[in-house]
Computed example of a mutant assay.
Amino acid sequence: MAGALALISAAALQPATAQDKRVIKIGVIGILAEAGLYVAAERGFFAQEGLQAEFLKDMYGPDGFPALATGQIDAMGGAFGPELINAVARGINAKVVAGMSSYIPGWDSGFLTVRKELIDSGRVKDYKDLKGLKVALAPALPNLTDYFASRYLALGGLTLKDVTIVNVPFANMIAALKTGGVDFAHTSEPMSTLTVGSGVAVKWKPVTSYAPVGLTVAMLQFGSNMLEKTPETGERVLAAYIRGARYYNDALKKPTGRGEIADILIKYTPVKSRPLYDKLAFSYSDPDAAISVDGMQDMAGYFARSTGTKPVDARTLVDERFRLAAVKRLGPYQK
């Protein structure tokens, strides 16, 4: 199987004609971090690869893996978490094949958000001051929110045992901060900017101050359809996605590019307020869809400690052949 891509002829890698287009079903969350996928669809990069992308909202995580296993969907987005580890342990053939959003300095699209009253009063000046306060963590634990909490609390010599944990779904975090039901939380865009705009909290620390450098937080995963049955199609999907990610990066460097990307995201995500895009921080999409395996390993170690299980080797959850083949065909990213 590893040599399957190498056996594909150069002719087979050329874009298919319109009549040969294959529908690729991709489970998505509908978040800003998936921008590369939506740009690829809107700018015709999937079509140029002989593909038609069909995005299925809310088909990810625990709900997505059964569909991935049975071939109902070909790929899905999402964050790395126990769901993937558990799915693979159950025998589901699923692999992370591309990074869609990473945390790097200068591209902070996540923040440790703290109630404004606590900052203005001087109650919270440093990480150690979070002791005894209430932290919002999304159910069910462990997940990315408590992983991040363990890291920023450690900067103040604290652990999760030093704070009060309140389980709050992402959709309710702004309300919880507003009522004082919680005092701080890790939030991502656009929630971070919406929270600040409501006057109830501040973006106190950028995520890159407490997350591993280059941590991949949104990933594209393949199931057996792409991994085993049609690996050449998987390479086409990655080529289209990478072109979308590169276009996204290039567009954001231009004066009018922010508006162009905003229009695409308004079409595909629940974030419909055009003025909001002028305020929020956009996610970083690596132009080669690189995956931080070291970051995944750090998260896997935390999940194992939290559940009392043996740590998984993150390298066994990643398949880079599609990404590397696509990058080789497309050539180096021209910055």
Rank of each mutant, 00 (worst) to 15 (best):
A171L: 13
N225H: 09
G214C: 13
P169M: 08
E189S: 08
V196H: 00
A201L: 08
A171G: 07
K134M: 11
A176K: 04
L155K: 15
W204Q: 09
R236K: 15
D250G: 00
G223P: 07
A218W: 08
A239D: 01
A185Q: 02
S188W: 10
A185W: 00
E228C: 07
V237C: 06
F184Q: 11
A140F: 00
T193A: 11
N225R: 13
A245Y: 04
L215S: 07
S224G: 05
K203V: 13
G180P: 06
T187N: 09
L158E: 01
G223K: 07
F184Y: 10
S192I: 11
L153F: 06
I165S: 02
A140Y: 00
M226W: 03
V213E: 13
G156M: 09
A176C: 10
S192Q: 04
L238N: 01
G157N: 06
T164V: 15
S198I: 08
P169C: 11
D183L: 09
G157W: 03
A136G: 15
W204L: 14
S150N: 10
M173C: 08
L252D: 02
V135L: 11
L144G: 09
D183E: 04
R151C: 05
S198R: 14
L133Q: 04
G181F: 05
V166M: 10
A185D: 03
L215Q: 08
K203R: 15
A185L: 05
A218M: 12
E232I: 11
V168Q: 05
S150A: 13
L137N: 02
A171C: 03
A239M: 15
T230E: 14
L220F: 10
M191K: 05
F222S: 10
V237L: 14
A176G: 06
I174H: 04
A239W: 09
S209M: 09
F222M: 12
V207C: 09
G234E: 04
L158K: 02
M226Y: 01
